[in-house]
């Protein structure tokens, strides 16, 4: 019983951490700062998704987490490409 309680507590702490990241994403000051903050939110969300899989006993969430990790990586690359070159394609 103890680990399940700990999972829920971990989930709550991680949720609070995403709000702290959101603070950095809102105040910036520059665009790369926001990208870094959003990337961290993505990593924490990934961990929360896996925690969900264990709290609710549904392994499906782990597959969602795998796809989420890939989308998080791709979106970060795309946004930094846009910042660097002013366009996404080419």
């Amino acid at each position: 019983m103890l680990p399940e309680t700990f999972f829920v507590a971990t989930g709550i702490v991680l949720g609070m951490l995403t709000f702290l990241c959101l603070y950095r994403a809102v105040i910036g000051p520059s665009a790369p700062d926001r990208v870094v903050a959003v990337n961290v939110i993505g990593t924490i969300t990934l961990v929360i998704l896996v925690l969900f899989a264990f709290i609710y006993g549904r392994t499906l969430y782990i597959d969602v987490a795998i796809v989420y990790a890939m989308i998080n990586f791709l979106s970060t690359l795309t946004i930094s490409r846009y910042l660097e070159k002013g366009r996404v394609t080419g």
């Binding site: 896996v50 782990i62 990790a69 890939m70 990586f73 970060t76 690359l77 930094s80 660097e84």
Partner: peptide
Amino acid sequence: MLLIIVFIFVANPTAAHAIAKAAYLS
């Protein structure tokens, strides 16, 4: 889980590299 761990160990530094370069060049 191991797949996710290996993926974030490859992807996180690569993403950081991309952001750092983009930040400098912008």
